[in-house]
């Protein structure tokens, strides 16, 4: 036992030639630069882009993707993926609507249940993936259908409209502004900050990177892989639950078909943000930038009256471009 003691304290002079350490800054520098260049270009064409109203609008548009992307960053860093997030948002959403409208619950417990439903969906995903040893892609491809089906079944396919009529406080999550800042933006920042802190300062964060970087070596280091993977999918679910609250409040309704395809936006934000789909490398700041970049592109094209169909083409191209640039950078490194 004493074997380590002396070796550990002996001689502390080993500062060799300083090579630049590849820090998190450089990983996000690319997307960040793209964001500024793009913003500048749009501003040249449409000066209204940089107005406070428009910028807040962009931030609000980015919020759903950014919240889901925060959870998705954890999942992708472990080398997994979660295709069921859109369906999780829907199920969490209609659960709240059902409880408030059909069952007459008051808002606060209903909102708590919405977040909880998200968390339980994530737990279910995590259990299927770890205990069932099903690859995340397959597992969440299945639960994507299951959660969506459950949402449709619970509401017989019908939305619940006009929630603020019975629950006037429900607008605090999505439409109100505080000190001029829209609620979705504040929620996004809170979720982002929590995600950032977990990833940087906790064991869960350390192991998230380690599992994605080399699951085998991590297991051989005595880490309980399943436990931390489970944690990651629960985090993803909780983020989806929060997103459901925010989004339902903004729409003032809950719909079983809401957020269809949102999982792809979340994955795109993570990838544009420089996180490797193989896991182990990436940052949550990058994801936030990725979500903003997508919103800026959509906003800019809208300002320039480009059709929404083109927007989709451009976003798709940006995803491919982002990964391509990332690969070229790595090769040069």
């Amino acid at each position: 036992m004493s074997g380590s003691a002396r070796i550990a304290t002996e001689g502390a002079a080993a500062r060799q030639a300083r090579l630049p350490a590849i820090g998190s800054f450089w990983q996000t520098a690319g997307p960040l630069a793209s964001l500024f260049v793009l913003g500048f270009a749009i501003w040249l064409v449409e000066p209204v882009f940089l107005s406070q109203t428009n910028l807040l609008n962009v931030a609000r548009q980015a919020s759903l993707t950014a919240i889901l992307g925060t959870g998705m960053t954890f999942v992708i860093l472990t080398g997994g993926v979660d295709l069921s997030v859109g369906s999780m948002v829907a199920l969490a959403s209609v659960s709240g609507g059902y409880l408030m409208i059909q069952q007459g619950w008051s808002m606060w417990p209903a909102v708590a249940v919405m977040v909880l439903v998200g968390g339980l969906c994530g737990l279910f995903n995590g259990l299927v993936i770890t205990l069932g040893r099903i690859p995340p892609f397959i597992a969440t491809l299945g639960t994507m259908q299951i959660f969506r089906g459950a949402a449709l079944q619970l509401t017989a396919g019908k939305p619940f409209f006009d929630i603020t009529k019975t629950h006037p406080q429900f607008d605090i999550w999505g439409t109100r502004e505080y000190a001029g800042i829209p609620a979705p933006v504040i929620i996004t920042l809170v979720v982002f900050t929590i995600g950032f802190l977990i990833l940087r300062y906790t064991r869960l964060g350390l192991y998230t990177y380690a599992i994605g970087g080399n699951e085998q070596a991590t297991r051989f280091s005595g880490v309980n892989i399943n436990r931390y993977k489970l944690g990651v999918y629960v985090l993803m679910g909780l983020a989806a639950g929060v997103a459901a609250v925010m989004w339902s409040s903004r729409l003032n309704s809950t719909q079983p078909t809401v957020a269809t395809g949102e999982e792809l936006n979340a994955i795109a934000a993570v990838v544009i943000g420089g996180t490797s789909l193989f896991g182990g490398e990436g940052t949550i700041v990058g994801t936030l930038i990725g979500a903003l970049l997508m919103a800026v592109i959509r906003n800019g094209l809208t300002l320039m009256h480009v059709s929404a169909f083109y927007q989709q083409i451009v976003i798709g191209a940006v995803v491919i471009l982002a990964v391509l640039i990332d690969r070229l950078q790595r090769r040069n490194a």
Binding site: A8, T9, G11, A12, A14, Q16, L19
Partner: peptide, 13 residues
């Protein structure tokens, strides 16, 4: 850093 020193691990940081 303790181990980098003690084991003379050559790394910039």
């Amino acid at each position: 850093r303790r181990f980098i020193g003690a084991l003379r691990i050559r790394t910039p940081s």
